[in-house]
Nucleic acid binder design. Structure first.
Lengths: 369, 369
DNA sequence: CTGTTAGCGCCTTCAA
DNA sequence: TTGAAGGCGCTAACAG
């Protein structure tokens, strides 16, 4: 069975193969592929049939090249982890949620998303990867980025970059973050003014993470504002539940009689770990000690006691950052823009508030769409 | 200040710019960029300096084209969701974990990952996206894929495809899945033989998801094996915690006096939702009713009662699938390969087993590295 | 309505 | 050790 025109089977069909097979020019095939009009109906039909028969799919690299746009954006997430082990079995939900927001924005315009996780303990390797990604996309989103400013500048000179939960003062990129300061403020005020907490224990996030340090700073700022309130101790966590557990073990190993009034965690996962460990040790939350988190992850609402926390619009963060990036890809001359998205205090039971229903009601209010 | 050679600043530097600026040919620059030897030291030095000065980063699309390889693989995840609303605030941890596995494999060889989520209620749109992604990668991983076989065949004709937790009998692609059958088997046997459960309630996953239906089938198969055991009812969930909650509400609305002995959930998230709802309703787990899950997500271990479940090596699934895909990219003629990865029964408290420590000990065992 | 023809930026023989 | 030059597959004027 001779193949009339010698189309190779093992090789992927190209535009030329289709053109030849259909007896038209490549320009016509291209028009058909992109649904442009100005092609006679029967010609289009014929081309379509050949495309179908050959299983033709245009090559993305070639398209990117010709139209000088890749229609891909990169998402880089910087992760903190315990140096030697890799025990972290739980994903960093924050990044995952941003990812969702970005991906759904992109899907609407049919762009693609390239993603890579970086290690904050390997700046050189991270930079290499960032360059590699920068070579394959039209713009980049960087989460929790502790990329040196000069490196960022270099990358930003090539393609637009938007920072998410990063350094908001970075001059070479747009930035979107949650209002960590306001959120922490509201949370601590609640603890102090409603529950009369005076002695606070802090479970902090990784100091490299900008939002961890913002929450840390805000906590101490509020506390300073009250004469009588103090941070009695702190544990350096890394946002994973396990670090909440370790923090509590350390705390309890020091004293079981003179406990703080509340534990303020830099995120929900650590709060969940902390609560678990406290209960394991026979302590009751919030009766013996209050615990609060930050993020408002779904699992915190399912906990007993349900977690009092600060809701930050993570997904929205991703969407907004993505929108801005696309805008800047269209017009690189845009002025730099940085923005804090509002947070919301979510009061449940772990702070000492009673009630049964606030959980559900609150969440509904929270889910503003 | 005249720019000696007229390099445009607003435009990204190309290989030619570097070559001209350094007074060498593009071939030489290319050699330097790729660290090939056969370039005199001082020449290399000069080129390197120009690269640095210009902030040159080679264009990925052009590289892909020239070397006929993109060094990118695609990860497509098919998601089930409640038709109209988009309430699902919790990410599908399964996919996230696979993503981790794949990404870390890829990072080692410096390849990139393109990712896209598909909707199982939009097969046409999904196929479009799959084609789009197929155009930009060297191979694809498809999670929980319910892509029609003929469509898959078309894509597979162009680039290699490996299915993860998909239809294991798909002839056009390699496939890696957890041993859902064996896992469910072990779990149910435990419930029946150790705890004497006779009446089981099922909270199933979305029927489109291959692993959900495998678990479903296995459950019924085991039950049939015992004469005296029955599945007294089932709720059609969609893997989200909320569906576990709804399932329990429905169950309790039907009867509060004649409860089943245990609730068997198709994954941990639904089990967590179910436990939460049961406790909310004043029932005690496992005293009044046992609940078991599937997956062994970290949050299940932190629950009280800690969740009895089946561990499946999700991350490993990603790694293995990825390794296979890379292999097949190198050699497309490989014979089809399908594999079930072993699961492990993780006994904690929610099934009725006592003890305090199994949680931690088990997990350590489970984390085999 | 359809075809011709330059590139897009890089890699890679093949020569020198 | 270095350079010249032909693609890679597609797009987008520009002609006809």
């Amino acid at each position: 069975m001779a193949r009339p025109t010698g189309v190779s089977v093992s090789q992927n069909a190209t535009l030329y193969d289709v053109a030849r097979e259909a007896g038209v020019s490549t320009a016509t095939v291209s028009r058909v592929v992109h649904g442009q009009d100005g092609v006679r109906a029967d010609t289009r039909q014929r081309v379509l049939e050949v495309i179908e028969a050959l299983g033709y799919i245009p090559d993305g690299a070639a398209q990117s090249m010709a139209r000088r746009r890749k229609e891909v954006i990169g998402l880089l997430a910087v992760e903190s982890r315990i140096t030697d082990t890799d025990v972290e079995e739980e994903g960093l939900l924050f990044e995952e949620e941003v990812l969702r927001g970005v991906e759904s924005s992109l899907r609407e315009i049919e762009w693609s998303l390239m993603i890579s996780f970086l290690r904050d303990d390997d700046p050189v390797g991270s930079f290499r990867r960032m360059q590699k990604v920068a070579a394959q996309v039209d713009g980049m989103l960087v989460i929790e980025g502790i990329v040196g400013s000069e490196r960022l500048e270099r990358l930003a000179a090539r393609i637009p970059i938007v920072l998410i939960a990063g350094q908001v003062d970075e001059p070479h990129a747009d930035a979107f973050s949650a209002d960590n300061h306001g959120g922490t403020m509201a949370l601590v005020q609640h603890l102090v003014e409603v529950h009369g907490c005076r002695r606070l224990h802090e479970i902090a996030g990784p100091p490299q993470a900008p939002d961890a340090s913002q929450r840390h700073a805000a906590l101490h700022e509020v506390v300073r504002g009250y004469g009588s309130v103090t941070v009695t101790g702190m544990f350096q966590g890394w946002f994973a539940a396990m670090s909440g557990q370790l923090a509590v073990r350390e705390l309890l190993s020091q004293t079981r009689t003179d406990l703080p009034d509340a534990i303020v965690c830099a995120n929900d996962q650590m709060a969940i770990g902390a609560i678990h460990e406290l209960e394991e040790a026979g302590l009751r939350v919030p009766a013996d000690i209050a615990v609060v988190g930050f993020d408002d992850m779904y699992s915190g609402a399912l906990l007993s006691p349900a977690l009092t926390t600060v809701r930050q619009p993570i997904r929205l963060l991703g969407e907004r950052a993505c929108a801005r990036l696309l805008q800047r890809i269209e017009d690189p001359s845009l002025a730099r823009h940085a923005e804090y998205l509002p947070t919301e205090l979510i009061i449940r039971q772990s702070c000492g508030c009673g009630g049964q229903e606030p959980t559900r009601r609150r969440r509904q209010l929270g889910a503003r769409r």
